[in-house]
Design a protein around this nucleic acid. Structure first.
Length: 566
RNA sequence: UGGGCCGUCGCCAAGCGGUAAGGCACCGGAUUUUGAUUCCGGCAUUCCUAGGUUCAAAUCCUAGCGGCCCAGCCA
């Protein structure tokens, strides 16, 4: 590798894979899979897994990544989630080609293999109730007891299991269990359940089955059938690996290979939640507007907020893959978006909290069309024309009668540059006679300052503005973190996560004057409102010609930092 | 005082016996018609702790300490 070549992103999993390739394991092939259960929408934690699995497949020749729905529990799954998940994966920029699978595709094969286990004396039908099974299981510190049904003759097991499939027994009457070791210190090895009776229609197999295989039984076999080489999952499955291996070892004569399970730590993000349970509660409890609420860390929420696929992929690259528990700061995610949009988003001007300014030395009907670049560094983004009129709006907090030290914006008698236009000087202030609130600033334009510095003095401040006569009025939504504490779901934070909801996480501003050109902005397009942040039209609420803007992320603001310290 | 796993800067994270990469954050300073961007500089004598092995330890050994996961017929 040359010095100039970018160093490959590396992590312990890729290290293992490269060693495997070097040893010509699996003929040098790498096959991974992303295996979501269609019982909820994807979030940024899933993006980490997607980027890992598809990323690896895209990185080695002769490799691929399957999209496989782990649909073994019809009670919790919905067909709608399948399409949503596919859309999210595609949107993130990944392609599974022809390799779309469902664990339910393998139900018949799984059933046949269960009979093989029974024949081998490695599985039995247990008739303990759920409660009984729990008490037989023992505890973390005490071994379990063997089920009284553990030594049922093979023929009886077979007959019962077939009857289970045929629907001869009510839900919960029996289970099929692996016969392993009730005294194992690993609870997953204490005769885990392989099949349960559940009279529920399945979104894929309809009512063909009334028995369903469990995750532990299904996942490893599905991996083997698809000839997955590296089965990557999160840390909580570490304890399941012995079972994964046990099942594949027992069935090795029936299956083409024995994939390698490798675990990595899941992603946690500060000031939000990643748990499907809590996400569901936020949605069903109407604490947010839906799965795609822009404050949520769901892929749909991030997309609606205005995040780009590239920014999310970059984020996943930066956080790395390890086995260490990690709570990543929101600032890193935000930075990834800024980094992308800084280069790619065209600029425009918008005023969120307008203050009227009259340029008193311009005629009433003054209309000047100024050509401005859409990006200060990238001329390829072109230019546009903005109208300057006698009355304009500026941001209310860009004017201060009693400016703090270091204030560079407009002050009484002071000068400031109108971005892309002239330098103006504040001559007088007009107030509401009742409330004394400032309603208008009377200012004078220095006509010799378009595209040039004023003579003999320096004007440091630059503020954005929009014509008061020619603009589009938009609704703008400002988002902040959904929670007030970094780890809202952690009991150590006190109370329930609901106690930590940020009441100011959404601020809706109506009738914000924005540049006319913004009326054509489409969902999916990002734009920088100069000096404010990156904004993107809301996917749901924008109408053709009437965008509603979501603030995706603010610009860095070192002045705000100075002010906060005060 | 059951089993599995983890502990390197505020947050991620390289490092795999030869004398602590990088990113984010933070703090300076330069340039700037975005207090943005960009640029330059600073930011772990120390790797959970304590012993030990070694010429040499974040890396090896021993003993502690702290944290996470597991007792669904969920995944």
């Amino acid at each position: 590798m040359s010095l100039h070549e970018e160093k490959k992103p590396t992590d312990f999993i890729r290290t293992i894979i490269e060693q495997d390739i070097a040893r010509n394991l699996n003929n040098g092939q790498v096959v991974t899979r992303f295996p979501p259960e269609p019982n909820g929408t994807l979030h940024i934690g899933h993006a980490k897994s997607i980027c890992l699995n598809f990323g690896i497949a895209g990185q080695y020749p002769n490799s691929r990544c399957h999209l496989r729905f782990d649909d073994t529990n019809p009670e919790k799954e919905e067909i709608a989630y399948i399409e949503a998940i596919k859309e999210d994966v595609r949107w993130l920029g990944f392609d599974w080609g022809d390799h779309l699978y469902f664990a339910s595709d393998y139900f018949e094969r799984l059933y046949q293999l269960a009979e093989v286990l029974i024949q081998k004396g490695k599985a039995y039908v247990c008739s303990l109730s759920a409660d009984e099974m729990r008490s037989y299981r023992g505890t973390l510190t005490e071994p379990g007891r063997e089920s009284p049904y553990r030594n049922r003759p093979i023929e009886e097991n077979l007959t019962l299991f077939r009857a289970m499939r045929a629907g001869d027994h009510p839900d919960g009457a029996h289970t099929l269990r692996a016969k392993i070791d009730m005294a194992s210190p690993n609870i997953n090895m204490r005769d885990p359940t392989l099949y349960r009776i559940r009279r529920v229609a399945h979104h894929q197999t309809k009512d063909r089955w009334c028995i369903y295989p469990t995750y532990d039984y299904t996942h490893c076999i599905s991996d083997a059938i698809e000839q997955i080489t590296h089965s990557l999952c999160t840390l909580e499955f570490e304890d399941h690996r012995p079972l994964y291996d046990w099942i594949l070892d027992e069935l090795h004569e029936e299956l083409p290979c024995h994939p390698q399970q490798i675990e990595f730590s899941r992603l946690e993000l500060e000031f939000t939640v990643m748990s499907k349970r809590i996400l569901t509660q936020l949605v069903t409890g109407h604490h947010v507007s839906g799965w795609d609420d822009p404050r949520l860390p769901t892929i749909a929420g991030l997309r609606r907020r205005g995040f780009t696929p590239a920014s999310i992929r970059n984020f996943c690259r930066l956080i790395g893959i390890t086995k260490a528990p990690n709570y990543v700061e929101m600032a890193l995610l935000e930075n990834c978006l800024r980094e992308d949009l800084e280069i790619n988003a065209p600029r425009a001007m918008a005023v969120l909290d307008p203050l009227r300014v009259v340029l008193e030395n311009l005629p009433e009907n003054h209309l000047e069309e100024i050509t401005v670049a859409n990006h200060p560094q990238n001329p390829n983004l072109g230019s546009r024309i903005i109208p300057l009129t006698r009355e304009i709006f500026i941001e209310r907090d860009d004017f201060d009668e009693n400016p703090p030290k270091g204030f560079k914006r407009l002050i009484p008698g002071g000068e400031v540059r109108l971005r892309n236009a002239y330098v103006i000087r504040c001559r007088s202030i007009i107030r509401d006679t009742q409330t004394q609130v400032i309603t208008t600033l009377m200012c004078e334009v220095d006509k010799d300052t378009l595209n040039k510095a004023p003579e003999g003095r320096k004007v440091k401040g630059v503020i954005h503005w929009v014509s008061a006569q020619r603009h589009y009025k938009a609704q703008v939504r400002l988002y902040d973190r959904l929670f007030t504490v970094p780890q809202p779901a952690d009991p150590k934070s006190g109370g329930s996560f609901l106690d930590h909801l940020n009441p100011d996480s959404l601020k809706i501003l109506e009738n914000c004057p924005v540049e006319e050109s913004l009326a054509d902005c489409q969902p999916g397009q990002a734009v920088q409102f100069e000096r404010l942040g990156y904004f993107s039209p809301d996917i749901r609420d924008s109408k053709p010609g009437q965008p509603v803007f979501n603030r995706s992320v603010s610009l860095r603001d070192s002045w705000a930092k100075v002010e906060n310290k005060r």
